[in-house]
């Protein structure tokens, strides 16, 4: 995976894993690979991966089942909440950045047009 410049690595790894889970690579209530295995596949220090997983456990997206490993949550509410939170955060960043150089109306129009053209594809 690629890293941006300044953010701590474990946060970037956590974001990456979160995206993979929300994308459906690891569906709800399934086991995610062990830390060592994840670390080896991503070529990232095990401690960093552990910190990233811990972050996901704190957020509730991942739960640690004693003796079994880490699983994507089986709680639909939590999953949905995190998914919405994520898309809201992404939208917020995008809108904030856009509003620095386009007006609100223009932005609405561009979004509508873009959605239409993406759907056509």
């Amino acid at each position: 995976m690629e890293f941006n410049d300044s953010e701590p690595l474990y946060i970037q790894v956590a974001d990456f894993l979160e995206r993979e889970i929300l994308d459906g690579k690891y569906p709800m209530n399934t086991k995610i690979p062990g830390v060592r295995e994840l670390a080896a596949t991503l070529v990232i220090n095990g401690r960093t991966v552990q910190n990233a997983v811990n972050r996901l456990v704190e957020s509730g997206l991942v739960e640690t089942r004693r003796g079994l490993g880490n699983f994507v949550t089986s709680n639909e509410k939590t999953f949905e909440m995190i998914r919405t939170k994520k898309i809201r955060a992404m939208a917020e960043t995008f809108i904030k950045n856009s509003l620095t150089f386009v007006s609100e109306d223009e932005l609405r129009r561009i979004i509508a047009e873009t959605i239409a053209s993406v759907q056509k594809e």
Binding site: R36, A39, A40, V43, N45
Partner: peptide, 10 residues
């Protein structure tokens, strides 16, 4: 290089 690093981690 990637392989070596992966091996190391694993």
């Amino acid at each position: 290089r990637r392989k070596l690093l992966q091996t190391l981690i694993q």
